[in-house]
Amino acid sequence: MQPLLLKPRYALSVLALMLTSTFTFFIGSAHAVNTTQTPYQTDRKDAGTSNSSSVTIGANGQVVTYGNGAITYTAPDGTKFKMTQTQFVELGNSLFQQECASCHGVTANGVPQNKTPGNFPNLRHEAAAAVDFWIESGRMPAANPRDVQAQRRPPKLSHKEALAIAAWIATLSKTTAWPLIPSTHLKGGSLADGSALFALNCAACHTITGDGDALAFDTYAPSLRNVPVVQITEAIRTGPGNMPRFAGNLSDAQVRDIVKYVSLYIQHPRNPGGLGLGGLGPVAEGFIGLALGVGLLALAGFWVGERQ
């Protein structure tokens, strides 16, 4: 008697079963990851103190500036915009109610009025640098609050308005939330340290050319090509969205080195070899090599080969 498996009908059905199970594996593993996690980080209570060498305390006992030769952090100050601090905070409050309260709530606690607490972050302990980053990078007010990740856009609010909102939010918390608005002194930075630290800390998501790339579940590491110095520093120190917050493991000097490398080389890559091809690496190179190189040569072959 012939074994069952040797009969074509049975062999085929076994093969079909194997193929089907293959596809089941495909489906299974694609859905195996938890999708319910929220991309927002709401808990910033663990904000540490800076590695600063000098701290300036204001008249009311609050921290006004601190920092060192690498980065100075300054509290939002209305006098720079020819306003008293009270007026400045009041401006921030009214702007917040107008632009932000529909999601973050009128008291900035992340609970919109008459709605159950949702996925909106509580901003009451938010640092000035974080507020400034989100507003000045155009991510807030969000184009679509339900987006997994807010996109960089031309900012809707001005520098002054962003700082005013940050100043108002600072008044909601009894302690000063770290960090304040940074200003990075690039002059003394080391490019070599910056490039090494960039490779170690940033390239894993933003890619070594700083072009950014897609991450899992609709999130992405944005391109660093057109990010101002202040916002790079703010992002490293506050960790917006999915980005980890680099607090204890990088000193101010190291952050300054990274920012210097990003602003001088990542944003202005020296392309001594010709066209940079978008920093895409082998994908673009392969396309050019095949389409332009082999394609042109095949056309030339047509031209040469068909000549009588």
């Binding site: 070594i208 070899g273 396309f287």
Partner: peptide, 29 residues
């Protein structure tokens, strides 16, 4: 070779540490 930059190794930096890794690394085509 003259006008299109390929494999800018100076941008990539050295492979001096197994913990250093860049996202979006593809091999040649």
């Amino acid at each position: 070779g003259a006008f299109a930059q390929i494999n800018p190794i100076w941008q990539f930096g050295p492979y001096d540490n197994t913990s250093v890794i860049s996202y979006a690394v593809q091999p040649d085509w």
